[in-house]
Design a protein around this nucleic acid. Structure first.
Length: 425
DNA sequence: CTGCGTAAG
DNA sequence: TTTTCTTACGCAG
């Protein structure tokens, strides 16, 4: 008997595991990866969790005691993680025809063979990723995405499973026991708000949600939660999705390392961010028709709250950094000189595939004729964002407000100069 | 169509 | 001195 099953493969403590893959001295030690600006912990090893550190813990509070605990912190190295993520998907793809990238460190994979073969199949994936990428993964297999997620949780929590769990391969009584003990909030798709509403009706465990009346759940929390109920019963409602080429919008936003409070500096920020948003636009071969430039003050200082934004509709879809950089300056008159802004961003909307509507010459700008925009982007793509740019974009020395990344590891897999050197003797 | 609430990692 | 960033979807208005 063969049944269509799904695996959810995820890397344990992905960012930390990427760091460890290239620096084995981190093995067995408490390790943290910090957010942009080295502000707070965003990922941690099991050893760091045991020290009581949680996501969001501010680094400046942990730093004084780090040495005493042997705690190591790394700045986030997204270039490395992104590349490792790509390799992770590639390996899974060699074991399955259907793969869906779910997040930077997770993927769903389809399995169409007999049930007894599912465990060995998952084990082969686990071993292949360990051998080729030095990354530890957990794999849950189930008849639906929700059950695969659940099995993945079990794979990590039950020591005997050693990272692989095939839900349908377990005893029915054992499955029931697990579900009756699992808090409903641990189910994929059930967040804190929904859990609270469910609890008010006596639904506090995964088993209770599975056995709840589907129509009742639909009325209480909508169709999405009803689908979750059906999926817990083994009825697939959430399909494996194709990679979506196309997104409706694109955001480039960053917090500043120190607040920005003058138009002069914000102009530099906008120039830099617009060009980086432009790079993302190009990497997806798209053009944007609308640009929103925005800034905001700290959420933790409600006294002087301000969140100015300016939305511009461009005459035609464009990916020209010159035009977008200029458009982003529209924020400046909206901001209050002297207010301490802590974060800003560029949102590009109304995206379309590049060249879908041929540019109407009437609106062509003088610099487009000379091809300055494409040239700038070409140089940035080839030689890095600090090679060339307009305004602040392209400066080699970091500006005062630019993000701090003081403990970043080398970009081992994407930069020749930063490749790992191995000496044999 | 848009903004908001909710969730995810 | 802190306290991430990004994407997606359903639903109400």
């Amino acid at each position: 008997m063969s049944k269509h099953l799904l695996a959810l493969v995820d890397v344990n403590s992905f960012y930390v595991s990427c760091e460890r893959a290239f620096d084995p001295t981190l093995e067995g030690r408490p390790v943290l990866v910090l957010s942009n600006n080295d502000g707070c912990a965003v990922a941690m090893s099991a050893e760091a969790k045991e020290l009581g550190i949680t996501v969001g813990a501010p680094w400046f509070k942990l730093a004084p005691n780090a040495q005493r605990h042997g705690l190591v912190a790394r700045s986030s190295n997204y270039e490395l993680y992104g590349d490792m993520s790509h390799r992770f998907l590639q390996v899974i793809g060699e074991h399955s025809h259907e793969v869906e990238k779910y997040s930077i460190d997770e993927a769903f994979a389809g399995y169409g063979g007999p049930l007894q073969g599912a465990g060995p199949w998952a084990e082969r994936i686990r071993r292949d990723i360990a051998e080729r990428l030095s990354l530890p993964v957990g794999i849950g297999v189930g008849a639906t995405k929700t059950l695969a997620k659940l099995a993945n949780l079990a794979a990590k929590r039950v020591p005997g499973m050693r990272g692989v769990c095939v839900w349908d391969g377990l005893d029915a009584e054992y499955r029931d026991w697990v579900m009756s003990r699992l808090p409903v909030q641990q189910i994929w798709g059930v967040g804190p708000r929904s859990a609270k509403k469910l609890a008010a009706h006596g639904v506090t465990t995964a088993a209770a949600l599975r056995d709840a009346d589907a129509q009742f759940v639909r009325r209480l929390l909508g169709v999405t939660m009803m689908r979750t109920v059906l999926e817990l019963r083994g009825q697939p409602c959430i399909q494996l999705e194709e990679e979506r080429e196309f997104r409706d919008s694109l955001v480039f936003s960053r917090s500043f390392s120190t607040p920005v409070s003058t138009r002069e500096i914000m102009a530099q920020v906008m120039a830099s961010y617009a060009q980086r948003a432009c790079t993302r636009l190009n990497s997806r071969s798209t053009e944007a028709k609308t640009l929103t430039a925005w800034a905001m003050t700290s959420q933790f200082n409600s006294a002087a709250e301000d969140s100015p934004s300016a939305t511009l509709s461009l005459p035609a879809p464009t990916n020209d950094p010159v035009l977008l950089t200029r458009a982003a300056q529209a924020l400046l008159p909206r901001m209050t000189e002297g207010t301490r802004y802590t974060k800003a961003g560029i949102t590009l909307t109304d995206l379309s595939p590049r060249g879908a509507q041929p540019a109407f010459d009437l609106f062509a700008e003088p610099q487009q004729d000379k091809g300055i925009g494409p040239l700038l982007q070409q140089v940035r793509e080839k030689s890095g964002t600090d090679a060339i740019g307009m305004g602040r974009g392209g400066m080699r020395t970091a500006a005062e407000w630019e993000m701090r990344r003081e403990m970043m590891s080398p970009r081992y897999t994407t930069r020749w100069q930063e490749m790992l050197e191995v000496h044999a003797r």
